[in-house]
């Protein structure tokens, strides 16, 4: 099911939380939603799940409008809200049954789905406990289980891995990736590494507008421009190495890297590649290379660049 967000605007009082936001997510795509606090991520997710109506614009989920046909849209969405609210006094199993029934899972399938969810989300030992008694990580799993219980075609996860330990984070990421192959997933996060690891596409929004959109590689390339290599060379003389590197025809800039001896950051000219030239140079001079690595722009840098202004 495709999600089409078409020029939505949502204001709270005088403040515009979302400002003519438009994007489209295709089936089988995992979209990572990034942005600083208060950028409008949660508001957009609430609008897609029919909890809030946008002031202007429309959202289509599988061709159905969230404002005109919310009951039908909601049947196809699994939603894990921020902070993961749950009925504290309910046992896990009862809560899952309640969710399944409300989502319209056929009666004969409810049991099967609950067993499946308990298995997928690793809740076997906790299934008869009251939700209040669970640790944060297990509550998060219950939240995920209720979102997945009716096998939804669209999954909206608002910061799904908060409060989980590193092992659980890896498990949940794997799960999201697996689910994302057949379904449409939108997830928001503050953790850039997580978005990079799980998402096919990243959308960065700031002040209610899209500031960057693309695959992680595309975004990096967009921000980076020229190739940068980190070179470390042994048994040579510092100034000689510097001027030799600088005189290579493909190299635009050479910088010393502080702290590590004989280590340089070499920036190539536009659309040029200097690795081979550096290698040949060292062979000729009889130096040996102990390090030659491309420096990738981190997603953090991209994020900072597009959201700071």
């Amino acid at each position: 099911m495709d999600i089409v967000v078409d020029k939505i605007t949502k204001t709270y009082g005088l403040q515009k939380a979302v400002d003519e936001l438009s994007f489209r997510v295709k089936t089988g795509e995992v979209l990572g939603f990034l942005g600083p606090n208060g950028a409008g991520k949660t508001t957009t997710m609430k609008a897609i799940t029919c909890f809030l109506n946008p002031n202007e614009g429309n959202i289509l989920v599988g061709g159905m409008s969230v404002t005109e046909n919310p009951e039908e849209v909601k049947k196809h969405i699994g939603y894990l809200p921020e902070n993961n609210p749950l009925y504290q006094d309910m046992p896990v199993i009862d809560y899952l049954r309640f969710s399944a029934e409300l989502q319209g899972v056929p009666k004969e399938k409810v049991r099967e789905r609950i067993i499946e969810m308990v298995k997928v989300c690793g809740l076997k030992a906790e299934k008869h406990k009251k939700i209040r008694e669970l640790s944060k990580g297990f509550r998060q799993r219950v939240g995920l289980a209720q979102a997945l219980i009716h096998d939804p075609e669209v999954l909206i996860l608002d910061e799904p891995t908060t409060g989980l330990d590193p092992n659980q984070i890896v498990e949940i990421r794997e799960l999201i990736k697996k689910i994302g192959k057949e379904k449409t997933v939108i997830l928001s996060s503050h953790i850039l590494a997580e978005v990079e690891a799980t998402c096919d596409r990243i959308l960065i929004i700031s002040k209610g507008k899209i500031v960057a959109d693309g695959t992680p590689e595309e975004l990096r390339k967009q921000a980076q421009g020229n190739e940068i290599l980190k070179v470390q060379i042994r048994n040579g003389e510092r100034n000689e190495m510097y001027s030799a590197l600088k005189s290579l025809p493909t190299v635009a800039l050479v910088d010393f890297i502080d702290g590590t001896p004989n280590c340089y950051e070499v920036q190539s000219k536009k659309d040029e590649n200097s690795a081979k030239a550096i290698f040949d140079l060292c062979v000729k001079k009889g130096w040996y290379i102990s390090q030659l690595t491309p420096v990738e722009t981190k997603l953090e840098d991209v994020f900072r660049e597009v959201t700071m202004n």
């Binding site: 799940t49 909890f51 909601k74 809200p81 609210p85 749950l86 969710s99 409300l102 989502q103």
Partner: peptide, 14 residues
């Protein structure tokens, strides 16, 4: 207060 209303209202109920 606990936010479960949001869960409830995003299920197919009016």
């Amino acid at each position: 207060k606990t936010g479960t209303l949001e869960i409830l209202l995003t299920k197919p109920v009016t």
